[in-house]
Each structure stands twice: as C-alpha cells, then as structure tokens.
Design a protein around this nucleic acid. Structure first.
Lengths: 346, 346
DNA sequence: CCGCCCCATGTCAACGCTGTCAAGAAAGCG
DNA sequence: CGCTTTCTTGACAGCGTTGACATGGGGCGG
C-alpha cells in the first residue's frame, strides 16, 4: 500500500499525527504498536490504516527513553574468525529485523591484558543499554562475564557454550555426534590409520569434537590409536600440524582437523610434501566455513548452521516469558566433498 | 581512576546526579559533555570529577530525543565478501568508538528484484535515523541511492567509489597505480607472457586495476598483448579462468587476478593442471585479504588498508564542518610473498 | 433491576537530555 | 567611574513515547 512516499527530508510522522488522523488517543496508537491486549478490532484497523498512510515508524529513542526496553540487541565478539563472525552476525541481524530490533556489535580483544580486557568487557556490557546480549565463543565461557551478567540481571543467550550448559539459554549442535559421523565416513571409506589436529586448548567445543571422533572409532573397533597433534584453529597451525604428522612416525591415511582453517593448512602441508589429496591422503575439516570451498579439492567437512544459530539465538533472546535454560540443539550435516576418498591399497 | 564500581544492577547515574554532586546546573554538565565553548576550567574540572566518580555515561536515547543527533553511524553493505566486510566494519567500529558513536549495520541484497531492493534500501536509509552513512561498493555507485541521500540532505562517505568521485567525500586507494606496481614486480622478475583475470563487469575498481596493470606493461615495452579472461571475484570463477588460460593458446608465465579470491582459484587450477606455483607459473592477487594467507604458497598481492579505509571513512563522516569532496587517498603496498618468482628459462 | 467487575479507551506525568533565552559576572572602553 | 560588550552560568520547556491511573459503558449474577 504505502508508497515510499515519505517525501521531504527528515520529516518523520509522529504518534501524534497518527492519533489525529485515526481520531483516537495517543495511548491507543501506542497500544496497537505494542500489540497490547484490550484493543478492539475496529480501533486497531483505524490506527493501522493511519500508520501506513503516514508511513509512520516509531522513534526508537523516544521509546527507549520512556519505556524500559531499548530495542537493541548486543552481539559480543572476541577475536573473530571472519567467516564465523559474519555468518553469526547475519543470522542475528535477520532475527532482529524480524522483531523490529536493532543490532549493536561490539568487539573485545582477549589478547589484551586481562585486567584491561575485563574492564572493557564489563564497561561495554553495563553501559551499552542493550535489552540483551548474544555471546559467542570464547566469551560464552568467561565466568567473570557470566557472573556479571547474572548479577546484573541482564539476559543473554550463548552460542555453542562449552561450560555450564544449563546456566543460560543457548544454542549449539552436538559436536561429538557430528565428529562421530565424520569418523564413520572415514571408516567406511576404509581408513584405519587416522590422526586428529586439535583446537586451542581452551576451546572446549574442539575437545568435544576430538572426543566424539575418537569414541566413534573405538566403537567401530579401530585397531590402533589415533594420533593427535596440537593445533590452534589457524591455517598456519594446520600447516605445522600437517607437517608434523607427515614427517614423523607412520603416516596416517586420513587426517581430521577440528576446524576448516586447520584442515586447509593440513592440505597445504600435504601439497608441500608432494602428496595428493585425496589420492594419497584424505583430509576433513569441521564448520563448513567459506574456506572449505576456497581450497582445492573442496573440503569434506561438517556443516554447522552458523547463520541459523545466530538467528535462533536472537529469537530466543527476544521471545517473551521465562527463557528455557536447556540448550537449543540444531542439526549438523556431514558434507562430503572431494578431499576424502578411499585409501590406496598398500 | 574510576573503578568498574558502578555497582547495582541497571542503576545508571543521570546528568542530574552529576550536576548535584558537582554543585552546578544541569546545563553546565551538558556543556562539558558536549565540549561546548564558554566553560571555565574550574567548572569543567568539577564536572569531570563528578562524572568519573559516578561513572556516568550519557544516555544516548535521551540525547538523540532532545537533540538533533542520533549518535549512530549506519554502515550499508550489499553482497558482502566476508573478509572485506569484516575489515571495513572493524575500522568503522573503531572510529565510532573513538567518537562515542554507535554503529548500526544493515545489509541489502541487490540480487533481489530491483523494485523491492530499492524500496528496502530507501526505507532503510530514511527510517533508521542515522547521523550519516558509510557506503561500500557496489552501493557507492547506485545513483538512485545517491540521489536520495543528496535530496534528503543526509551525509555519507563512500569507500572506493567508482562513479562521480567529486560527488561526495570518499576514501580510496589508487587502484591503477597499485596494479601498476604489481605489473612492474612481475616484469622485473622476467615475466613477458602475462594474463589478467578480470572482475565483475560492473565493478569499476576492478577495471581500473586491469587498466593500470596493462598500461604499466605497455610503458615497459611488453612485446606481446596481455591475455584477458573474465572472472567474477570468486574462487570458482578463478578456477574457471585459470583453467581457460592454461588450456588454450600459449601459456602465460604469470597471471594477475584482480582480487585474491580469484587468485586462489587460479592457483587451484594450476594445481589441477599439475603446475607448481611459483616454479612453473606465478600468480598474484589484489586486496591482501585473509585468503591470501590461507593458500599455499602464500599469495603475492597488493595490500589495501581496508580497515584503515573504514576508519578514515567514519572519521570523515564524524568530523565537524563542511566535508571535502575530494577523495581521501590512502596508501597501498605491494606484498611480495611466495606465489611469484622468476620464470624458468625455456 | 441493582451493583460489581471487566473491557475499551483516554489523560497526564515522567524518561534524561539539549536548545533557547535570560541573567549575573567580568572585562573593555572612553 | 559608568556604560557596553563579552563571557560564564543557570532556568525551563520540550523531544516522542510509555506506564500508572482514571473513566465510562456493557455484561452478568443475584
């Protein structure tokens, strides 16, 4: 109906205009906008007509000044991997938009000195006047932050928390099961000499991936132990880990890196060592991030619905009523691409 | 001085509290906060002491309701490449933070039908009540949007605009010169058979890179024409372009892809064709995005200070007084890594 | 048929800050 | 030394919305 006909520069209709045009009181307009009960259908219609005729959009500043809500969701990042961050952000953004909320993004840098970092983090949270926060790893497991939020009565939803899953609403996938499905995939291809590239020590989700992977193989009856080398979720770390695995000891026929960046690094190490993926060696990652399709061959990995997780987290945060503290589990899926294949017969 | 001592949940000090503690009027506090003239040093000190004692932070909602500013900068994206977007965002964010501004991010999707896209874009701009906008390509060259902003008297700064450089404040690098420096690098290594992978047709910056590259070679006296194949700034596009260049006709000894993603694709195509980079063929990109260090060998490329561009753009927007419409030029730098080397003697 | 309660709607004072205007103090000038 | 100008400070009314409360009409039990 309403054309993009708002006309003159900077002239915004106010609630007053709507009320006058609809012939009702200010408060009634407010009621319609906020979907409050005790509004007759007729009144609602009149108001809605006036709103769209005037192309009225409520003024957020006035709303938050008068009311108790700010209509802002805070998204907190620390040390972002660009792809992950972008995807989360996109999902959260869409959910905010659907709920007429705005998104405020803040970065903290945990590599700063702890005291400074903490001061900044708590300052950010207490001064930004958001209606709630969405936390991503590793902030999800920062006990100081969680304590502060709880103490202040600020709502928050965590994405893929590793600690105290029952402490707050959260969304995540079953990392262990997901890694297990990858383990079965490699097993079924015929791989028996396997290795894992671990994640950062404090990243507990990475540890769960490792555990799920190894447990699944044990269950399948893998004869020999899985080799494990450290990694740090980065491409360089992947190169180092891959190099280590290829140089010393018996060479694995398949390597599972606990995220895609590491896996890409492992593939680079293989190329350096003159091995062809997947003919000579299989490599698999985890996340299905953008890099999984920016390497050749395309990476076999586990897809986490990252954007969807962001969307779900924001929806959880914005939903009225008492939040559930049980984790909201989303589906992962195994994405078989070109970096895994049956091992050559020796 | 001030500890993170703001104490009880949700209790924020107001200007009233500050005024009372400092023993001055409300308005005086306001003056200090807004750095208005005509404030004695003594008064300023008293107020500042009270502010930090109370850990006072002005309420943005009230400020924007009462005043004419909203303290929000809008950052508009369309079809974001994750790395580019993240870096711009980071720079803009930091500049906002330095100026006590907040950042609002909005995405539009230009692949939607034109009418819908336009309605959304203009709605976004006119309803979001930002003090100004930062535009990134390709939004920088959307004439409908620019007209609307100008007509509405809304300030904006463009990052790397391609059209009508004098129309608004903008920040950019000299794409042609940057590509030329890459051309000279390849020339000096001894390459004489060169090829370019182009960018999306409408991306004019990509065209400028191509032009600068070719012009520099012509000036150096390159005996034969540079081969050109289409690309679309994506990894897949790079693979296709690379494959095309390697299959038909005389094989180039060096390939310049007009962005890093394409370059990574070209490298993948080389690997598929059994060629080794840089021994058999050199590859160079443009952007120095994150992918340049997520491939092996690490990519030789041109560094655009993307984050800095975001920072500069926001600073320009927030600076008081009449903005300059001459482009704000930032420095690029040639980043020589491992993907380029002297060609083998035939 | 009366009184009570509930539903629909309205009135009005905040919310925390800035813009306008006024007033007092200090400084400049002849 | 008195008058004007300039500098410094303050009083007060909104900004556009919501929350608390008031009001009046209709349904329902007794």
């Amino acid at each position: 109906m309403s054309m993009s006909e708002n006309g003159r520069a900077g002239e915004h209709a106010t609630m007053d205009d709507v009320a006058r045009l609809a012939g009702v009181s200010l408060k009634s307009v407010s009621r319609v906008i906020n979907a409050e009960p005790h509004v007759s259908a007729r009144l609602r219609e009149k108001v809605e007509a006036a709103i769209s005729a005037l192309n009225y959009v409520p003024d957020t500043a006035a709303r938050s000044l008068a009311g108790s809500r700010t209509f802002i969701v805070g998204l907190l990042f620390d040390n972002p991997s660009p792809n992950y961050t972008m995807n989360i952000q996109k999902g959260v953004y869409e959910a905010c938009r659907a709920n007429q909320y705005h998104l405020r993004i803040d970065n903290v840098d945990s590599s700063a000195p702890r005291a400074e970092y903490e001061a900044r983090l708590l300052g950010l949270v207490s001064n930004s006047r958001c209606d709630g926060f969405i936390l991503t790893p590793p902030l999800t497991d920062d006990v100081v932050l969680l304590d502060f939020l709880d103490r202040s009565g600020i709502r928050y939803v965590r994405i893929s928390p590793a600690l105290q899953a029952q402490r707050s609403p959260s969304v995540c996938i079953d990392d262990a099961q997901a890694a297990a499905s990858l383990a079965r995939h490699l097993w079924e291809l015929g791989h028996r000499k396997l290795a894992v590239v671990l994640g950062p020590e404090r990243h507990l989700a990475a540890a769960r991936r490792r555990d799920g992977f190894i447990a699944a193989l044990a269950e399948l009856g893998l004869p020999e132990p899985v080799r494990e080398v450290p990694g740090n979720f980065s491409f360089e770390g992947g190169i180092r880990a891959g190099t280590e695995l290829l140089q010393d000891g018996p060479r694995p026929t398949a390597i599972f890196a606990t995220n895609d960046d590491s896996a890409a690094g492992v593939m680079a190490a293989c190329a350096q060592a003159g091995l062809r993926v997947p003919a000579d060696i299989s490599v698999a990652g985890f996340d299905d991030s953008w890099i999984a399709r920016s390497v050749w061959p395309y990476l076999t990995t586990v897809n986490q619905p990252i954007e969807e997780m962001g969307y779900a987290a924001a929806s959880l945060l914005l939903r009225k009523g008492e939040p559930q503290n049980t984790p909201h589990l989303l589906d992962y899926s195994l994405v078989v691409r070109d970096s895994t294949a049956a091992p050559l017969r020796a």
